[in-house]
Amino acid sequence: MTRSHAGTTRAPQRAETVEPASDSAESSTHPVASEEDLLSIRHAVRAATLHAGFGIVDQTRVVTAASELARNAYVHGGGGTLTLDIVRRLGTTGIRLTVEDDGPGIADIEEAFTDGFTTGAGLGHGLGGARRLMDDFTLSSTAGRGTVVTATRWNNRRAP
């Protein structure tokens, strides 16, 4: 009966290492606990993308991804936090979003990335869509211990 609790171990663990925060220049953490928080997160992310010199389309991509991820954490994860980092890599600036929740975790990660898959409000494009909007995307989830999503978009505009 080693697998007796099979019902709770369905979640595949795809924990990928998140790069250390040593390259992060500025960082702020925002609560994801109410709908008002979703709004202030959008503001904070928009301000950060402006600060990082992103073009208008990239700004919109990152803010939209943040909105999707934060809503996911709020609706499915029962709330959590979004950490916003401005990161630099070889003269390029990026925005890194780290969204953590203490929710039930994601049972089937592949399924969660499928467009149209949803367990709540929205169109079910949240995770997969956010992944398409960002350059780097990692997700790790453990059943019963919440989900951590890290997503980065790099500024590809020419340096000023």
């Binding site: 070889l90 003269g91 390029t92 590809n156 505009r157 020419r158 340096a159």
Partner: peptide, 17 residues
């Protein structure tokens, strides 16, 4: 390592332009 990545970044920017 940095040199190679740096050149790549330059190439990337130029190709974008």
């Amino acid at each position: 390592e940095v040199y190679v990545e740096g050149r790549e970044a330059i190439i990337h920017r130029q190709s974008h332009q």
